[in-house]
Design a protein around this nucleic acid. Structure first.
Lengths: 351, 351
DNA sequence: ATGAAAGCGCTAACAG
DNA sequence: CTGTTAGCGCTTTCAT
């Protein structure tokens, strides 16, 4: 039993156990790790002592000795967003499956805090580091490049190339194309594109949108709307507000939104404008967060497979820890057809 | 610069720095920690060496030496649910504010895994442990009691009393009463109660419901519906299904749901049954997860203030780590009146 | 102001 | 099969 002296906790160590049953610490270590022969008799004695003292081996001390760590660090913008939460769920599943533990730090959407988080995790001697949606924009030149030299480094949805790092990326270009194609095939010609500011993810999608619409002779600058901060708890309401102004003017028959929050905002705007979804107007979101099938009509969207995104990242770190090479893996983005898309009202034949 | 030999990472230690500039490790330690005088000249030399070698102090080694830890462990059922994610957001904010780091482990709603997670965290020498919504039902008799002896232990929404632990609880009894009172004041008499299985949280709420309805002479066993697993990604659809069967028979004018997922399911069921919310029927949820204001009509619900729940728990561990006593704190549950509740259609005068 | 040395809890040779 | 010992990276007396 641990003794509590003046409020301080003092737990049994390997020495306590050894002394308790008159063997050496080496022997105790051996029965704990089952890696060298120990006579049945002493093994039992030692185990009894372990039980009695509630001895728990100190992993930190072991790792110090072994010169390797079994914890993985994760830097995430925050958990307020289901997207990140699900990614972490995936990381945790893979990581704990391989006997690693997960050290988590939130960057609060602040580049400075992101760096501080990464540094903190490194100092805590993580065996590898995963950074989700890194804020590379205002990034100190080779902050991560240095880091990659000392620790396996993986980015999830990091758009800037960092030397020495591995990447897990959702196939957003392909995904955007699929979504838009879906709308086109339904006969839609006036497709609005709703994006947010300050993320490479939006830029990638806009590029695809422009190319595709251009190719179809359908590009109309007025149809591209930037609603500002696209990833906060106000995104739904903000989008609703902005679209309620734009809908009457642009009269789209379909709306593509860069994430599901915006798409739900779009649903609200249509509802307020007395446009039935999907009868009068179709809406496609992106990400497939849980919210997408909680709303009504259920949202048609592109599944980023966040759990797999996280899971793959975890596998990549572990691979690198074991001496593997850097890799870049893409997770397929697939269309989830639900209730918010349908045939265009007055389908225009596609030439 | 760290050397990479046959794919293995080998980082600079305090010894490397000391050797590099011909001082003792003690001196290096002093300039790193700024806790003892060092001459300006050597300080500069040492700092230069630190920069050059990209030396990062090893927190694990320091903590081993100092015999104290600066990491907090958190056991959570999972992150698939926004409730838990927001609680962790709160914990992380408080914890990192106090220079602690967060070690996270998911219990996957499995009591055995929950114990494994807790053990794992303890072995990693956390300074304190927070368990969110512990699955105390099938709990090995004094698993946590033992644990509380060796490490500060905090439960968030833990209903079984464990000796030696601190508690942070949402005031669910009061919250349930507030929600029901709200409905009563709106003139509702036929109030349905929707709960899930296997959680003390449901039992607490049902108790309040029964008392209150009994007191009003309104209790009707038929109005209490248990929809089974109440906290999965299927909860919304399951609730919709079950209620679509019960609504026509019971004809409630209001529905109280034990969490927001169920409440959204109830909204769907009403919609399918052509009951306008809130004109024909009122719905109150519980928790106030983000979803609640993303749906339309926006959900009236009881705010559990998850962020504060987590924040308070973190403060409690830290308090205990510093030698404080065990405490039990309640976080107020407040009514958030939005769009899903309104005057009863044919208000019956309350006697 | 600086260095030498002990030791945190643990594991892995190396002897016996 | 078991014990002795060195040392992981670090901090902190205790000397100088």
């Amino acid at each position: 039993m641990a003794e509590k002296e003046n409020g301080a906790y003092r737990n049994a160590t390997i020495v306590d156990v050894a002394r308790k049953c008159g063997v050496s610490v080496a022997t105790v270590s051996r029965v704990v790790n089952r890696n060298y022969p120990v006579s049945e008799k002493t093994r039992l004695r030692v185990q009894a002592a372990i039980e009695e003292l509630h001895y728990v081996p100190n992993v930190q001390a072991r790792e110090l000795n072994l010169r390797h760590s079994t914890t993985i660090g994760v830097v995430v913008p925050g958990l307020y967003n289901m997207f990140f939460a699900e990614v972490i769920d995936g990381i945790e599943a893979a990581v704990s499956n391989d006997k690693y533990s997960l050290l988590l730090s939130c960057a609060r959407n602040d580049p400075a805090q992101e760096q501080a988080s990464a540094r903190e995790l490194i100092a805590r001697n993580v065996a590898g580091l995963i950074v989700i949606s890194p804020n590379t924009e205002m990034l100190e030149e080779d902050f991560y490049k240095q880091m990659a030299v000392r620790t396996p480094l993986i980015f999830i949805n990091g758009y800037r190339e960092i030397e020495g790092a591995s990447y897990v990326m959702g196939a957003e270009e392909a995904g955007t194309r699929i979504a838009l194609q879906h709308l086109l095939e339904l006969g839609h010609r006036r497709i609005m594109f709703v994006r947010g500011s300050h993320s490479d993810s939006y830029a990638v999608k806009e590029k695809v949108y422009r190319e595709l619409m251009q190719a179809e002779g359908l590009l109309d600058e007025q149809m591209i709307v930037d609603m500002g901060d696209g990833n906060t708890s106000d995104t739904v309401d903000d989008t609703e507000w902005i679209l309620s102004l734009r809908l009457p003017k642009q009269k789209p028959t379909a709306i593509f939104c860069c994430n599901d929050l915006m798409a739900v905002g779009a649903q609200h705007a249509c509802q307020k404008a007395n446009l039935a979804v999907p009868e009068d107007i179709s809406i496609v979101g992106y990400d497939n967060i849980a919210l997408a099938h909680f709303v009504s009509p259920k949202l048609t969207t592109i599944d980023q497979q966040m759990f797999r995104l996280g899971h793959a990242a975890a596998e990549l770190v572990i691979e690198k820890i074991r001496g593997g090479r850097n890799r870049r893996v893409e997770i397929e983005n697939v269309l989830v057809e639900r209730e918010s898309t349908g045939q265009a009202r007055c389908p225009v034949k596609r030439e």
